[in-house]
Design a protein around this nucleic acid. Sequence first.
DNA 1: TTGACATATTCCGATATCGGTATATATTGC
DNA 2: GCAATATATACCGATATCGGAATATGTCAA
Lengths: 117, 117
Amino acid sequence: MARAATTADAFNAVAEPRRRQILDVLAGGERPVNDLVRALGLAQPQVSKHLRVLREVGAVDVREDGRRRLYRLNGRALKPIHDWVRTYERSWSERFDQLDLVLEDLKQKEADDGDNE
Amino acid sequence: MARAATTADAFNAVAEPRRRQILDVLAGGERPVNDLVRALGLAQPQVSKHLRVLREVGAVDVREDGRRRLYRLNGRALKPIHDWVRTYERSWSERFDQLDLVLEDLKQKEADDGDNE
DNA sequence: TTGACATATTCCGATATCGGTATATATTGC
DNA sequence: GCAATATATACCGATATCGGAATATGTCAA
């Protein structure tokens, strides 16, 4: 066995920086391939290949428009990533530090109440 | 050139499901390698190798304890992932749909005010 | 119909990965 | 010092990737 396919899931698809860039551009709205080629400064075949991966994990949708193909973001495919990483937000967010203090306080008061009864 | 190294950044490190599992276990607190071996049902060398990758991207820290090594989560390394994916939350969250409606409303009122003056 | 344009696919060579297995390194207790 | 334990590293074969280049497919316009 080797490394998981880039098309295995959103995590793998999005590990490639160029593909994140593509999604960032598409966040601004539907775009034909050539716009992406210019925006990223990549060769056209590479862009088409990256788009294929993003399509396979459902992160983008395509629509035909004459000889062009318009790609559109489908952010929903990124939700699993957000869901997973969100549980670690506590590790760096000051907000949670404050919350922890409050909870600690409540716990302490509870313990005190217990002592008094 | 080939695919980026798994140690290139947190995105690549975390694309591997086993490594996410390891972090999930470590979220419960500091653990020696053997605990992870049992928790994941993986062979010890594979766990050590995954831990090396996580160490190289700063997602875990190690502490010596006799013949054991205690690994601890360092969630801060995941912040770039959170920051990136957060901007796409709008795509699936109902909350933002509501916000969009409100903003649309405000814009409409502004336009009306402009007409009246 | 021919040529220009837009996009996708195929082939290439280089490379880093994955799990498995064997082995190295270090620490403990007898 | 020796066996047991805990962990890391080295080697292997299989594989999927990456960018680059060439080419295929499809559409428009004159």
